[in-house]
Design a protein around this nucleic acid. Structure first.
Length: 311
RNA sequence: CGCGGGAUGGAGCAGUAGCAGCUCGCCGGGCUCAUAAUCCGGAGGUCGGGGGUGCAAAUCCCCCUCCCGCAA
């Protein structure tokens, strides 16, 4: 039996889980590096990363270092004698000294069609941009973010009303398939990485809670894309009676209204929100202490909802 | 012990001790070429569960279960 390639895996979020599983089938994973447990959720209990949970169930060695830019950590990595490393949604920038340790380099799974949507929120970036297609790119890491040469790339179609979670899940599956089919050919030298066309690079930024506050003066189409891109983080919300009101879904339609942007109006018997241009319809909301519901249901209990101007 | 809100007909909500209500939906009927229209009538609730106090509890006290917002 042939010895499997020794690799180290870096990853944190749920997107990385199928990738880890695929990797475990084709390589000898000596170490899994993920971010430390952190207080999270109601009650502020310590919570493991999805990768930590899955790696432990696969009986893999897991490390959860805080800072990774120190010689002690480099030594640990070096001692594992990795031929290559794979990184997927880890959440931290790795120092160049670390990238140099594995002889075959660090492979990075990035959920966009690089050089488009480099950076920390590529999936949201593709939805926000209104792209018809996105995909997964397997690259080698170099000193710049999402900048290295391309080993493999495949695209998929973004469905018309698709939200982030669905797209992320499909991209994760694609990423897992790609890693499984490309890793060995790359390590055996049968794939030559191709330099990216840096002139066409676009960049995404880290999403903050503030990004999820809806500006009703924007076009309905823009707001609808935000709703889909920011689900579930940071989410999209507005204010109603000084309470947050999450907007979970909505569709942009053409239409004019005399009311100012942010006003809730009756449109064909359903609540609709007036935007800078067009209307938002087919709305799902979630009030501060309630479950998700249609805007029509919400309006039944909040008699002043229609006609109210959201903030 | 991070902070906080909630559970009331099928859905969404009001109701701080004295006959359980509102909007929507549903069923039947009227009007109508038609409906996101409108009119008339009707069904549907042991008020999350258990215990306590009261002449009387959805409402006050104690315990339990479930759900959610903020924060990360």
């Amino acid at each position: 039996m042939i010895e499997k390639t020794r690799v180290i895996f870096f990853g944190t979020s749920a997107f990385a889980v199928p990738v880890l599983e695929a990797l475990s089938a084709v390589a000898d994973i000596r170490l899994v590096i993920t971010r430390p447990d952190a207080p999270a959720g109601r009650g502020k209990n310590l919570q493991s990363s999805p990768i930590r949970a899955r790696a432990e169930s696969l009986n893999l060695n897991v490390l959860t270092p805080g800072p990774v830019n120190n010689s002690d950590f480099y030594k640990v990595i070096d001692n594992a004698q990795p031929e290559a490393a794979v990184l997927a949604a880890y959440g931290k920038i790795l120092p160049l000294e670390l990238l140099r340790i594995p002889a075959k380099g660090f492979l990075n799974v990035h959920p966009s069609l690089l050089p488009r949507h480099r950076g920390p929120s590529p999936i949201s970036g593709a939805i926000l941009a209104g792209d018809a297609q996105t995909g997964v790119t397997l690259i080698l890491l170099d000193q710049e973010m999402d900048h290295g040469p391309v080993i493999a790339q495949r695209s998929i179609t973004i469905e018309p009303h698709e939200h982030h979670p669905s797209l992320e899940q499909r991209l994760a599956m694609l990423a897992a398939e790609m890693l499984q089919s490309s890793l060995l050919p790359f390590l055996e030298g049968r794939i030559t990485p191709q330099t990216q066309n840096h002139d066409q690079a676009t960049f995404t930024k880290l999403l903050k809670r503030q990004d999820g506050l809806i500006d009703w003066s924007q076009e309905a189409a823009t707001i609808a894309k935000q709703i889909r891109a920011y689900d579930p983080w940071p989410g999209t919300a507005t204010q109603f009676h000084n309470q947050p009101l999450k907007i979970l879904d909505g569709r942009a339609v053409d239409g004019q209204a005399s009311e100012p942007a942010g006003t809730v109006i009756n449109h064909l018997g359903q609540p609709a929100f007036v935007c800078g241009r067009g209307l938002l319809t087919h709305i799902m909301v979630q009030p501060a202490n309630g479950k998700p519901m249609t805007a029509a249901d919400f309006a039944n209990g909040q008699r002043d909802f229609i006609g109210h101007r959201l903030g």
